[in-house]
């Protein structure tokens, strides 16, 4: 009899508690599984190399790659080249975003321009930016301007297309309302078009950030523009295999960082977007 309150009490709160606990357990299980997956790949590669199943001249042990990586971290040239790569990426991306957003807003807000430029955009967009490599080499050689033009061309199109989608997505009622309140074109752009287009701009940012990194590294590797990509080429041609891998790992981690950052920025914007929508409806 005295035990009945004790047995009765748990179900009252227990209905929710085990569920949250199991969700948290699942999430922590996923984290551990993810770490396990990374370990499997690292240890697997180490074993493949140590046992000679894969020629260590092609795939050095992972421990050697990381030894080389940590050695690089203490050297000035590494940080200098890292900075050059990140700077080239950031400048190219910023220019592509600025140009894409401005051009997109202008073309997108004028129906005639939109229809008139459509075929040209559809034609220019799929032209591979690497087709421009010979041209930029002639014009700028190995100067950073070569990489800049390639990055700009490659990253501009996804931005432009997303902004055009975004501007086309504007609610006509909202636009008409703004007009009937005698908002000027600039104010309409700022308070009606911009909020609608913002999620699209964030998508554009995510796509363009990844493309820009690919082209920056390509320009460094293929043309010889200073940066980590060029160092990869140097390490490979001087048969320094662990360093080649170490640099590839670094470039991959930059890519991961770029993706995470873009997703973080995007999630902020989307959260804002949906919260505004939620309040109004």
């Amino acid at each position: 009899m005295s035990s009945s309150p004790a047995t009765l009490a748990p179900p009252a709160s227990g209905g929710t508690r085990p569920r949250t606990r199991s969700r948290r357990a699942r999430r922590s299980r996923d984290v551990w599984l993810g770490i396990l997956g990374v370990l499997i790949v690292l240890v697997g590669a180490e074993i493949l190399s140590r046992t000679g199943i894969v020629n260590p001249a092609f795939l050095p042990p992972v421990t050697e790659m990381y030894a080389s990586l940590f050695q690089m971290l203490g050297e000035g040239w590494f940080w200098e080249n890292l900075w050059l790569t990140v700077r080239g990426w950031a400048i190219g991306l910023a220019a592509a975003m600025a140009l894409g957003i401005v051009v997109g807003f202008i073309i997108g807000s004028v129906p005639f321009l939109r229809a008139f430029t459509n075929s040209t955009i559809e034609f220019l967009r799929p032209i591979p930016s690497v087709a421009l490599i010979p041209l930029v080499v002639l014009l700028f050689g190995t100067k950073p301007a070569s990489a800049f033009l390639l990055v700009l061309y490659a990253a501009f199109w996804p931005v432009l297309v997303q902004v055009l989608y975004g501007v086309a997505d504007v609610d006509p009622v909202a636009r008409d309302t703004a007009r009937s309140y005698q908002f000027g074109p600039l104010r309409i752009a700022r308070s009606v078009i911009y909020p609608t287009a913002l999620p699209y701009i964030m998508t554009a940012f995510r796509l363009a950030a990844a493309v820009a990194l690919i082209l920056e590294i390509t320009a460094e590797l293929v043309i010889g523009v200073p940066g980590l990509g060029k160092q990869i080429g140097i390490a490979q041609s001087s048969a320094n295999v662990p360093e080649t891998y170490a640099l590839v790992i670094v470039v991959g981690l930059i890519g991961v960082a770029v993706n995470l950052m873009a997703r973080f920025v995007e999630r902020k914007a989307l959260w804002w977007h949906s919260s505004v929508r939620g309040e109004h409806s």
Binding site: D30, L33, A210, A235, Y245, V248
Partner: peptide, 29 residues
């Protein structure tokens, strides 16, 4: 779901590696 949790971080890394740097690596092989 198990396989996904296992593979996700590894896939995130390989996706983020700019594909052109594969060229020198594959050139080794």
């Amino acid at each position: 779901p198990t396989l996904r949790a296992l593979a996700e971080p590894v896939l995130e890394f390989f996706r983020a590696v700019p594909p052109p740097v594969l060229v020198p690596i594959i050139a080794l092989f």
